[in-house]
Every structure is written in C-alpha cells, then in structure tokens.
Design a binder for these strands. Sequence first.
DNA 1: CGTCATCGTCGAACCGGTTCAACAGCAGGA
DNA 2: TCCTGCTGTTGAACCGGTTCGACGATGACG
Lengths: 345, 345
Amino acid sequence: MATIGDVAREAGVSRSTASYALSGKRPISDEVRRRVLAAAEALAYTPNAGARALATSQTKVLGLLAQFHEDEFAPAMMQYLLGVTDTARDLGYDTLLVTEADGARALRRITDSRMVDGVVLMNIAQDDQRLPILRAAPQPGALVGLPGDCSGLDVFDLDFEEAGRVMVEHLHRLGHRELILISQPEHVVERGGAYVWRLRDAALERARQLGVTLHAVYGESRQPAVGRLLNELLDTYPSATGLMINNEAATAALPSVAHERGLRVPEDLSVIGRYSAEFAATFSLPYSFIESAPDRLGSMAVRQLVRRVESPAARDEPFVVRFISPELISRGSTAPPGAPHPNAR
Amino acid sequence: MATIGDVAREAGVSRSTASYALSGKRPISDEVRRRVLAAAEALAYTPNAGARALATSQTKVLGLLAQFHEDEFAPAMMQYLLGVTDTARDLGYDTLLVTEADGARALRRITDSRMVDGVVLMNIAQDDQRLPILRAAPQPGALVGLPGDCSGLDVFDLDFEEAGRVMVEHLHRLGHRELILISQPEHVVERGGAYVWRLRDAALERARQLGVTLHAVYGESRQPAVGRLLNELLDTYPSATGLMINNEAATAALPSVAHERGLRVPEDLSVIGRYSAEFAATFSLPYSFIESAPDRLGSMAVRQLVRRVESPAARDEPFVVRFISPELISRGSTAPPGAPHPNAR
DNA sequence: CGTCATCGTCGAACCGGTTCAACAGCAGGA
DNA sequence: TCCTGCTGTTGAACCGGTTCGACGATGACG
C-alpha cells in the first residue's frame, strides 16, 4: 500500500511538500502540484486513517450508541439509524454502530480511546447512566431523546407533550368525549423512557381541561400480547369513540384486530397514531398519525454534532434542546363519533 | 488525556516497560507490573486507538456494508445487523456501519484507508460490483448472501434452494396439488438478488417432479401494493390450496387480507413463509415458516472473518461457502386441503 | 546594486503507541 | 574468580501522516 513517502519520492519532492500539495494548506507551484497529484493517482494513494487520526486528533468517525431492547419495536429503530448514517456520510463522517448492552462501558471505550470525534446517543432514559460519561468526554455529544437533565449536551426530540395535546384536541374538536390512549409497555417506562409519560401526562392534562374522559393504559410491544390487549381494551371501554396510540407494535396490530371485531374506522372508532411516514408505508397503516420524524431527528443531531466537532467557536455555543413540532398527517381515520362513512352517499 | 508516557513516568519506568507490563508480551517483575497497573488505573489510561492502529496495523474494527434499498423490507434487516454487531463485540471488535448508496466506493474508502480489519458485505447481488474490490483489498471479507462468483471470499447464506424444495414437498405430502409462490419484487431480482430465483427455481423444479402446479409470481415490498397483489392472486388462482411466501412484506400483509376475504388458514389455504423467528414474534405471524436465521448468519460471517484476521494460518485456509439448512418451524398453518379445522370437534 | 518581502520547498519534530536489539544485574557452574 | 546464561528493563526506531520553522530563489523597491 502506498504511503505519502512513496508519493513524494515518485513526484520527486519531500513528504511535507506532498502533504501540502494534497491538502492545499500551503501554496504550491502548479508544476509540483500536478506531479504530486499524478503520483498519488498512479500509486492509488489513500491516506492511512490511523496515522491521520494520530496526527490530527480527528478520526472522521462518529459513534452511534443504540440499544435494541427486546421490548422496544425494532423496525421503528431503522429510520433513526439511517438518518444518522446518511447525514454523517454527507458531511464526511463514517459511523461506528455500538449496540452493546452496557452502554456506559461502550461509551467510555469509544471516547477514551479517541475512536470517534463525537457521539450520538439514542434510547435516552430519564436518568441515563451514559450522560455523565458523555459530559466528561472530550468529544461533543448529541442526544436523540430527552433526558431528565439536558445540561452540557445538545438534545433533539419530538415534542411529545404537544403531540399528546394535539391528539386530544383533534378528537375533542370532532366531538369525542371518551378516549383511550395506549402507551408503550410498562417496562419501557420503568427503564426511563420519558417520552411515554411526557405524551401521556400532557394528554391527560388537556383532556381534563376539555372535560374529556381519557383512559391511559400501558401497551405491549409484542404479539400476541398486544393483540390480546387491544381486544381487552375495546371490551373494557365500549363507549370510547377515539383511540390514540403511542406504540408502534400496537398500531401495527390494530388493523387485523379491527377486522376481527368488525370494527370500522373511523365510523365506529377514530384512530390517531404516532409513528413515521416510512413506518406507515411499510405496514400500510391507514391511520392519521403524528409524524415522529426519526430520520429528521437523527439528521439534526448529526448536523449539530458535526458543527461542534469542526468549529472551535461552535464548541462554546450554548447547548440546544430542540423539539420537532408534531405534525398531524391526516389519513381519514378520524371523524365525528357515530358519523356516517365519509365515502358513503 | 493520559498517554502511555504519563503512565510510565508515574510508575517510574520507561515507556517500553509500561507497554510490556500492560500487554504482558514480555516478562516483567511483579513489583513493576503492579506499579504500572496502578499508575494506569490512577490516570484512567486508555490507549489511543489511532496510535495503536498505526503501530500494530490492527484497528479492531470491522466494516459492515449494508444497503437499505427502498424496495427491500427494512425491518427484516435489523436482525442481520444485530447478529453482526453483537458477535463482533463479543470477539473484541467494533463495527463501522456503512449504508452508502455507492457500495463500491464506500468499500474502497474503508479498506484503502485501513479503517477496518475486515469487512462483512450484505445485500449481495449476483454480479456484485463490490466483490472485485474486496478480493483485491488487503483485509479479508465475508459475505452474507451468495453471489455468482464466490472465489476468494467466505460466503454464508441460507440454503434457499433446499428451502424451496422443502416448502413444496411439505405441501405436496399433505395432498396439495396447486400452489402459489410469492417472491420478492421484480426489481430485487433485477438488481441481482439471487436468493429470489434460487428458491423459486428449485421450487418449480421440485413441483414439476412431483406433478404439482406452481404459480410463481413476483411480489411487492410495500403497502398498499402488496395487499392489492395478494387479493389479485387469490382471485386469479381460486383453486390453489397452498401459498408459499418468500417476501416479508407480503407475509406481514397476509393476515389482514385473509381476514378481509374471510379466508381461513389452514382450512381454506395452507401457508408457509420464509422469515426469522424474531420477525414472526414482532408481527405475530401465525404461519409455519422456514427460519431464515439472520442473526446466525451474521454471527457466522463475523466469526470466520475474525479467524482470518487474527490467525495468519487461517488466512491461507481455503475459502468456505456455508449454507444453513432450512428448518421448517411448524405453526399449524398447513393442513391437507379442504381438511376440517384441527381444533374443531 | 544591495535590501527586503514573498513564494515555494524542505527537514525535523510530533502525534502515541509497539517492538527490537542491547544491556545491566544477578545466580549458577567451572 | 571469571565466564555464561537468564531475567527484567531500557533507548531507539518505526508506523504514516501533519505542521512548524527555516531557508533558498525570485522579484520589487529604494
């Protein structure tokens, strides 16, 4: 494999000149530059990443810490991953994907050893063990998800509280007065998945203000438990006319349960979910939903991270906590309670 | 950040001694070793990955090239990823996830720059552009998926041909004489997804031998196209009694289509899929299926890769092409055609 | 014609590890 | 007592880049 020394020799110049010719960091005569570039081309020269990292203290690699808990819904994670890796590549970075169960140890390993220039954390818990480590690390970090304490880090998340309110308000406006909210499974909450109760509590509060009855329950993340749960709920609250779902697995399971019960949406039941457009397309979910924009969130986190990595000035800027406003995408799965089918004449 | 020089000074020894004490590659007195380890501990010393890579020509990172084409089914990819990252970590390696559209360029980048010690390629095409690059690379490579030319690389894949035969034989044995096979979408085939026609051709061949009529069609990977297709097929071949599905999206869409049509499985239609147990659990697929074992395949590829990376002897061993035998997991979705419901009295 | 910038190039040092050859100290054998 | 061999430690070189300070050549200027 050709080194910069080989290129220099081939071009008849010193190593430093070759380096400057390739990087353009000092003026080099056209003649010499041409010779160096030609030599590099001829020898198929590619800089050694380790050597460059050593010399520049920059690896051009970002760390991505993601956990695929058994009880979270794996398919929904994919979009976050892609948002991060694609944006990183656009900005000239590769992505080190770390799925280790012990996230704190993994984080320490990749930051202490200087394998990465920055880190994106996913699956943020309310009291996330990884945060103190990330704050103390020499590299900047960005979170996709809102922890209890955001200090010292850039945070990006969907505005789950607003999402909860939007769902309730939308259904209330249509005339619904008794609603069900299915959240993620209880252990997601126990592990500190704050977005679950952020949406739920805001929804409950708004429902109270509007005088709407809201039954908030934990869901399941797997079949067949989630299908069973849906049936139970519909049996338990037969007078509820609206269903809000903050749980991808439950959403994916709903169409067949509805069919089974002969339940028509939106005539018998109005439904609003919270997931991504990509997810909707994959599973053909015919429901109106709050776009959770995983790719946008991943992309935003990476952009901010790279800004901090590359600009010394940006390092000292105040940290941001940025919420994406929930956008309600209408798919016609909501209607006034007891209304005739919208397609009927 | 502490360097090995700091550790050496703190312990009152030379840098080389510190290095040997930490690596154990030369005998070091207990006394000195203790001092070095204590110093390393006290200073929270972690070796700089770039420097180590430069000195040893080993990065302890594996590359994972995966493509998430719009028309392949993203959720099914997840298990492959996890199989690779988890096994790599167990063996002491981190994983660089590269999802770049131009796989050949990405591969060249990470191998030429020596960012990785080895590479796992996924989404293998019959005439995969990345293979010549990988063969020429100084690092070993392993494939998850079977290309047209396997030379110079270790290959791991499900035995799709046997899978096709097993499906046909199983249904034939139950008495079925007219079957439908839904494959992946046509563009997956056009892009060189050989597993599609490997399964299909073997199934057709066996069906011919057994005197079974087999309607083999391309599927879709997205809703609502895939739901529409299922309906069309069932309309077109009303006398078919068995359905074989080599297409995750179609499988996931089947339950609601069946419900809609009032089609009972297995009384009216026997169904066999090809997917992973994890996938089945996530979507509650009540069908018997050929286990595609993505995590096992990813894991096997990584193990072989690491063997070649770490042992000079293993480098020269002949390359392997290893097929996982298809295992038919019964979920009771097949029965003799026209048979009564197994739970009926 | 001498002086001074400016431009282009070079040598050397550095990043932080690993590893080789050499060597000091000590015990054992002649 | 001297030589040999072993153990434990060290200095120096090396991996392959980047970057700083210096220096020779060239042209502008007084």
